[in-house]
């Protein structure tokens, strides 16, 4: 079971991570696109996923990743990501709902370059209970 006391909490912003053209090219190539070009609309998951590791690693939160299924994902982009952007991620625990012994966790991550919002990313995980 997840610790519902975490709802409404915000993790400290991650240290800036500078986007390289090589990482954008690798992401594009993996999706079968030409290496040259802008970051795909789903690229920021490579930043938001590690930003959430601190929740996975926190024993008080109780998130067992071997029981997790990705249920929903949403991106709202204020502008495209470009190589050279120094991006920070601020993860908010938006909601935890318990349904028939399973937990449904939604996080919202604000991705910013300095003071400028680049994207808002929502991730909803289904966490299988013991039953």
């Amino acid at each position: 079971m997840l610790n519902a006391a975490y709802v409404g909490r915000t993790l400290p912003a991650t240290a800036p991570h500078v986007v390289t053209s090589a990482e954008v090219a690798a992401f594009r190539a993996a999706l079968g696109m030409s290496a040259e070009g802008p970051a795909p609309a789903t690229f920021l998951v490579s930043h938001t996923l590690p930003a959430s590791d601190r929740l996975v690693d926190d024993p008080d939160f109780g998130l067992d990743f071997t029981r997790v299924l990705h249920r929903e994902q949403r991106f709202a982009h204020a502008r495209p990501v470009v190589p050279g952007d120094a991006l920070t991620c601020t993860v908010h625990v938006e909601s935890i709902k318990t349904v028939a012994g399973n937990d449904v966790l939604t996080t919202r991550t604000e991705v910013a370059a300095g003071d400028e919002t680049v994207s808002t990313v929502w991730t909803t995980l289904f966490v299988r209970g013991d039953a």
Binding site: P38, P40, H77
Partner: peptide
């Protein structure tokens, strides 16, 4: 996203995307 941008003719054409 790849299919959407291929249709749009621009690879940064997606403003919002939910699945």
């Amino acid at each position: 996203a790849r299919a959407l941008t291929a249709w749009a003719g621009s690879e940064d054409a997606i403003l919002e995307y939910t699945v």
